[in-house]
Amino acid sequence: MPLGKYYCDYCDKQFQDTSSARKRHLQGLQHQRAKTLYYESFKGQNQIQSDSFGRGTCNHFLRTGFCQYGDSCIYIHPKPQHLQNPISQLMPTSEDAIRGGMSISLGNLPPSLRPPPEGGYPPLPFVDWG
């Protein structure tokens, strides 16, 4: 049975698909450089990306409102307006729906994500699978 070919998108190379050949290629310097260049090509395209993307929120700052590391902390310190009522930031207002903004309202959520009705769910009929 002939072996298949493995194609590396980063390096634009094709070689025999064996575990040793693939491992040797993926650990090679040329592949590492090509992969790095590929991902670096996307860095400047999106203006939304920031220095803080991918970092977590400082739990100590959330609990106490103070962090001993200050600006040198490796985690994000949210602004006070985000701390006071984070739920209101997530729930859209009716104005958002009127303006046509891309927001989530309870009307367009799938049934599994909607809150239960006030009186609870109606009882299901008993089915004997016997």
Rank of each mutant, 00 (worst) to 15 (best):
M1A: 13
P2I: 06
L3R: 00
Y6S: 05
Y7F: 11
C8R: 00
D9P: 13
C11Y: 06
C11G: 10
K13I: 12
K13P: 01
Q14R: 12
F15I: 00
Q16H: 02
Q16V: 08
S20T: 03
S20I: 07
A21K: 10
R22G: 02
K23A: 07
K23G: 05
L26A: 07
L26Y: 15
Q30R: 14
Q30E: 15
Q32Y: 13
A34Y: 01
K35Y: 03
K35I: 01
K35D: 00
Y38L: 05
Y38V: 09
Y39Q: 05
Y39F: 11
E40Q: 12
S41M: 07
S41N: 14
F42R: 06
K43Q: 13
G44W: 11
Q45C: 09
N46P: 00
I48L: 07
Q49D: 12
S50Y: 12
D51H: 14
S52F: 14
S52N: 14
R55N: 11
F61V: 02
F61K: 00
L62D: 00
L62R: 00
T64F: 07
T64Y: 02
G65H: 13
C67I: 08
C67F: 01
C67D: 09
Y69E: 11
D71N: 04
I74V: 12
Y75L: 04
H77L: 04
H77N: 02
P80T: 15
H82Y: 15
L83D: 09
Q84A: 05
N85R: 03
P86C: 06
S88G: 13
Q89L: 13
M91H: 09
M91V: 05
P92V: 04
T93A: 00
E95L: 13
E95A: 13
A97Q: 09
A97W: 13
I98N: 06
R99N: 09
R99D: 05
G101C: 12
M102I: 09
S103P: 07
S105A: 14
L106F: 15
G107V: 15
G107K: 14
G107F: 14
G107I: 15
N108I: 13
P111V: 02
S112P: 02
L113E: 08
R114G: 00
E118I: 10
G119K: 03
G119A: 02
G120N: 06
Y121G: 01
P123E: 10
L124F: 10
P125D: 14
P125C: 06
V127G: 02
W129T: 09
W129I: 01
